[in-house]
């Protein structure tokens, strides 16, 4: 997580990197409402000058992202994987994910984000990087009254959570991405990061990439798998260390499953969550799965 001063455009609007144009419109309108000068939520928190700065940055973000050409350019400059989007028109019939919730944008996701189920159902599938996401059409602006209604829906327990989560694992599941927008936004260095005079960042991406490993509801997140996913996304371990500030030594131990010199579990859990977030995976699930393996290995 980063201070709004250091957030990239997607983070500023709280939308995912592969958001459709319509989603960006909605995200922008929502951000304008949330951060309007008379919004009671922000009045109590931000100083006047901070709010002004934030609002400026939101405008800037919108101007760049709402223009497909500028958006492509921005993605390239920031080293984000050029998305196959937004070619699919928002009016296209929705590809229903198995829990068949309408595709959420953030406002709706918040409503759906009522249970760890939400995270499970939105199982970790599909690297947004490679996947030609066809965007379900359900993103008309959230009605003001909607959250309350939606809550009722989602509060009732899913009678078949397992089935849903399995099915969701094999279907495009935008819910997860919308729910945790940072999770898919490759974190980027603060543009003004002064302590890194180390020259230009490496070329955006190598031409050849390992294929993305398949992830299902049963997938165990071993160190090797994390490394594989990382490589499939063309992300170096140095870069994760750089952005998360996790010691690269620990990152290597985690990938190698060399538990001998890792710090106490609570820290490892935190590291795993940060790494997972960076890779666009479900942080809670990755941490739980990895630590389970670690504990099993600790037993004779």
């Amino acid at each position: 997580m980063r201070d709004f001063r250091e957030q990239n455009f997607y983070e500023l609007l709280d939308c995912r990197v592969h958001a459709t144009q319509q989603e960006i419109e909605n995200a922008y309108k929502r951000a304008r409402r949330f951060f309007s000068p008379d919004s009671v939520a922000t009045y109590a928190l931000f100083q006047a000058d901070e709010l002004k700065l934030l609002r400026q940055r939101i405008e800037e973000a919108y101007q760049a992202l709402s223009d497909p050409r500028r958006r492509r350019q921005y993605d390239q400059e920031m080293g984000m994987t050029p998305g196959p989007l937004p070619s699919s028109p928002p009016s296209q019939p929705p590809v229903e994910p198995a829990g068949s919730q309408p595709a959420p944008d953030l406002a709706e996701a918040a409503v759906q984000d009522v249970g760890p189920e939400a995270e499970e159902e939105a199982a970790i599938e599909a690297p947004p990087v490679v996947e030609p996401v066809s965007q379900p059409a359900g993103d008309e602006p959230a009605e003001p009254g909607a959250p309350v209604e939606g809550d009722i829906e989602t509060s009732s327990p899913d009678p078949h959570p397992e089935a849903a989560s399995e099915a969701a694992a094999s279907a495009p599941a935008p819910a997860e991405e919308a729910e945790q927008p940072e999770a898919v936004a490759p974190e980027l260095d603060a543009p003004e990061a002064p302590e890194e005079p180390a020259g230009p960042s490496p070329a955006p991406e190598p031409p050849e990439r390992a294929p993305m490993p398949e992830i299902t509801a049963e997938t165990e997140f071993s160190g090797a798998l994390l490394a594989e996913i990382r490589e499939a996304r063309g992300i170096s371990i140095e870069r994760i260390a750089d952005v998360t500030k996790i010691n690269i030594y620990y990152l290597r131990l985690i990938e190698a499953e060399d538990y001998s010199d890792l710090p106490a579990e609570v820290y490892v859990r935190g590291y795993l969550k940060q790494v997972a977030q960076f890779l666009g995976l479900d942080p809670a699930r990755v941490a739980a799965s990895y630590l389970e393996r670690k504990r099993a290995a600790g037993k004779p």
């Binding site: 957030q7 709280d14 009671v40 939520a41 928190l45 953030l106 918040a110 003001p144 809550d151 509060s155």
Partner: peptide, 28 residues
Amino acid sequence: TPEDAELGMAVRTACRKYFGIDLDYLGS
């Protein structure tokens, strides 16, 4: 009001941007 109903989301977003703490919005 409908604006009130949206407040939880707004607080969550503001808190995350400003504090870095991600609240889990349970409902209203």
